[in-house]
Nucleic acid binder design. Structure first.
Length: 462
DNA sequence: ATGTGC
């Protein structure tokens, strides 16, 4: 019996020493170590039953004291937060943000103009917490991100662009590269994968899926980048560019699912309204492990993009003139305006620190924008991550017809490979309005106009 | 978002 056995049971602070003392007393009376551990587990789960126990009373009282100090009760009222583009944000997203701002661990928050209803924290929600990380504050697709490469080539034909996309990308839930042509990346060789069993188990899946895009709103597309003033090391003009949206695939999804369950189990008394926002303390083993896995998923997702862009650039025998990338589903440790370090969750929000570059896409047939952050502290240095849905997937499938989507694509000269009605441009807010609502969060650097777009095949093909 | 569930 030692301190490790005790902490493995989940005792914290003064309870560790008291549990050790009690364990020694019990051992003296001839109880086996194994039975002592069982008894300790009982005390931990039902401290109220041991307050008069000759050996465990001190421990039980300490545990009850700790419980009283760590209440999961929600605040009566949400902390105040600002919304950018309030007129574009649905009530459901505000209600979810209100719940998040009632969590005892919340410090500050903001809603971006693309905000809409999500799972737990709304998409387009930014939430700062104190020493706690919320798996569903990051989202299921941990590390979901954007990458743009500006290519030193003349305009290609649509057919050529379509061929490059078909040959060098793979889409769909469960999708992976065929074994013979499976790409590799340094991220798969990191020691981090050996840090604990869950990561070890997921490494093979991650290796199978590197360099792939998922389903839903993920895409890889060719288009034109238009720059009006010298920037990004480029002269004003029009450039051929490649833009991708992808995430951490099955690996990240499994990490998210696992730690959401862990967080919910650690907060059984949490108000059902906030159940999906269950958090992990960063100074406890579970929180540390999630943070490690989350950061790995973030690097893995960016590696995914790198592989996709590299394949296409190599086929074209070119090196990109410039690349821009950013994660928009992740948590970061960040200095808050009062000087303390907080955990900033961005669930569908672009980091926009002063001078930081990011990409805000529109839709399959609407422009996207390269932006530069203005470091606005009220938005916790964030911006929108896209246009944001104005219709849910089911609503889009119900209300939009394929002909209207096809016409929209034709009018804008966009060729679509795959794609579904649920991702129709009409299901999204107008990107121009969304960009206009965040002029104090980001400056527009360049505009990307899509031309040939590849996505997963939706439920209903276009 | 994910190839599948408290």
């Amino acid at each position: 019996m030692n301190g490790n056995d005790i902490t493995a049971l989940g005792f914290r602070g003064k309870a560790i020493g008291l549990a050790l003392d009690a364990a020694r007393e019990r051992a003296k009376t001839g109880v086996t170590n194994r039975d002592v551990l069982t008894e300790l587990a009982h005390v931990q789960h039902h401290p109220e039953s041991f307050t008069d126990d000759p050996d465990y009373a001190a421990l039980a009282r300490e545990l009850l004291g700790q419980l009283a100090k760590v209440p999961d009760a929600l605040r009566d009222r949400p902390l105040a937060y600002r919304q950018w583009g309030e007129d574009l944000i649905e009530e459901g997203a505000r209600a979810q943000m209100d719940t998040a701002m009632r969590l005892p661990v919340s410090v500050a928050g903001a809603l971006m103009p693309d905000a809409h209803f999500g799972y737990g924290l709304p998409i387009g929600g930014v939430l700062a917490t104190d020493n706690a990380v919320i798996p569903y504050g990051v989202g299921v697709d941990i590390g979901c991100s954007m990458k743009l490469s500006v290519l030193p080539i003349e305009q290609l034909s649509r057919e050529e662009e379509a061929r490059l996309l078909r040959r060098n990308t793979r889409f769909g839930a469960g999708g992976s590269w065929e074994r013979k042509v499976r790409p590799d990346h340094d991220v798969l060789d990191e020691d981090t994968w050996d840090e604990f069993p869950l990561l070890r188990q997921l490494r093979d899946k991650a290796a199978e899926q590197i360099g792939t895009s998922g389903s839903g709103n993920h895409f890889v597309e060719f288009g034109t980048l238009t720059i009006d003033r010298p920037d990004l090391g480029l002269e004003p003009g029009e450039y051929v560019a490649l833009l991708s949206h992808s995430g951490s695939r099955g690996f990240g999804a499994q990490v998210a699912g696992h730690y959401t369950r862990v967080a919910q189990n650690l907060h059984p008394k949490l108000d059902p309204e906030a159940r999906k926002l269950a958090w992990l303390d960063l100074d406890r083993e579970e929180g540390e492990a999630y943070w490690t896995a989350m950061e790995l998923a973030g690097r893995y997702a960016l590696a995914n993009h790198e592989v996709i862009h590299q394949r296409i650039a190599q086929t074209l025998k070119v090196t990109p003139l410039v690349t821009v990338s950013n994660s928009h589903n992740l948590a970061w440790k960040q200095r808050f305006s009062d000087g303390r370090e907080v955990v900033v969750h961005r669930k569908g929000a672009t980091p926009a620190a002063h001078g930081q570059l990011g990409i805000i896409p529109g839709s399959m047939a609407d422009p996207g924008f390269v932006v530069r952050g203005r470091g606005n502290p009220a938005a916790l240095e964030s911006a929108s991550h896209g246009a944001g849905r104005q219709m849910g997937r089911k609503q889009a499938e119900r209300e939009l017809d394929r002909a209207a989507v096809t016409r929209y694509l034709e009018e804008r000269g966009v060729t679509l490979l795959g794609g579904g009605v649920d991702e129709a441009p009409q299901a999204y807010k107008r990107i121009e309005e969304v960009i206009a609502r965040q002029a104090d969060l980001v400056d527009v650097v360049a505009k990307f106009t899509p031309r040939v777009v590849r996505m997963d095949t939706g439920k209903e093909d276009i």
